[in-house]
Simulated scan of single mutants.
Amino acid sequence: MEKKEKNNLIIELLGNAKSIAILPNKVGGADAYCAGVGLYQMLKAKDKNVSLIYPGKIPDKCENLLKKEEIVSDVTGRELHVSIDYSNTPAAKVQYSTEHGVLYLKVGPVNKYFEVSRVHTELKGMEHEVFITVGAQVLEDFGQTYRELENELHSAKIINLDNTDRNFRFGHFNLVEPFADSLSLLVLTSSVEWGLNVTKEAAETLLVGISHRNPIVG
């Protein structure tokens, strides 16, 4: 696939995606982290619903690039969603209470033939349409994070950004540039091609990554 065609498809994918997650590889150190954060900041500036997933310790001198609450460090957490279809019932009140860690929900009035099958539960939390990986040669490089998100990753579209020819091209879109001096520089050039605005905040973040670039392997 020609690079221009690939970039056009990525622009369309990012534009239509309702939820995007960015996964910097911890092995890539400050460079991979800053590349991911810079991309996160640019997508946030476009009002995209984007998450940065980075469990564990933030690289040195990068701690203040993002607020702690903006970083998803626990990928095991989910939200329990409960829905009750009370249509065609006279239900007009909803009450809830908690006791000893148990939530009690009361909806009424409903008739005695109300079908409990109209009550549904669902776990949600990591259903992203697009994952952008930064600095990983294979998905397994993410270790426990990959194991926790394996189903979600294989259900989503993956944009794979890397600067080593050892990359296994596991993404739906692979931007692998072995001659790129750093991942942060690769994100900078790619973001311009994707029509993203390189904000002052993102530029400063990427500059930190470029200054901490790792030697290119391969």
Score class of each variant (00 low, 15 high):
P90W: 02
V94Q: 05
I132F: 06
L23A: 05
I210V: 13
N16L: 06
D85W: 06
T164K: 05
K157C: 13
A92M: 14
R147Y: 10
H154T: 09
S83Y: 07
N7P: 01
Y113M: 09
L196D: 01
N197K: 11
F114Y: 15
N160F: 07
S190C: 11
N7F: 14
L185W: 08
G77Q: 13
N7K: 11
L161W: 09
L153R: 00
N167F: 09
V27E: 10
E148Q: 13
G36N: 02
I11K: 15
S83P: 01
L105R: 03
N88P: 00
G125Y: 04
Y146D: 09
E63A: 11
R169H: 15
A136L: 10
H120C: 10
L149F: 02
Q95A: 09
V75F: 10
N8T: 03
L105C: 06
S184H: 07
S97V: 03
H100F: 08
R213K: 13
T145K: 01
A180R: 02
N111P: 12
V37T: 12
Y104G: 13
E79W: 05
S73W: 06
A202S: 12
Q41Y: 00
A30R: 03
S182W: 00
V192N: 07
Y33S: 10
H212S: 10
R147V: 06
Y113R: 15
T98H: 06
K4H: 09
F170S: 03
A91L: 04
F170L: 07
V130M: 04
V27G: 00
L80M: 10
A92D: 14
G38Y: 04
I84F: 11
M126P: 06
K61A: 11
K46L: 06
K68N: 15
N16S: 14
V217L: 01
L43M: 05
E99A: 11
F179I: 08
H81K: 11
A91F: 06
H154M: 04
L183N: 03
T164P: 05
G56P: 01
H120K: 15
G108N: 13
Y40E: 01
E129P: 06
L175R: 04
D47W: 04
L161M: 12
T145M: 12
L39S: 02
K46E: 13
A21N: 08
H212W: 08
L39N: 01
R169A: 12
A202H: 00
Y33V: 08
E201M: 05
V119F: 10
R118L: 14
F168G: 00
I216Y: 04
K44I: 01
K6M: 13
K93V: 15
K61R: 13
E69N: 09
K124C: 02
D31F: 01
S155A: 14
E204Y: 05
R169Y: 15
L9K: 14
G77L: 12
G209Q: 07
F114N: 07
A21C: 13
T133F: 08
K200L: 11
S51I: 02
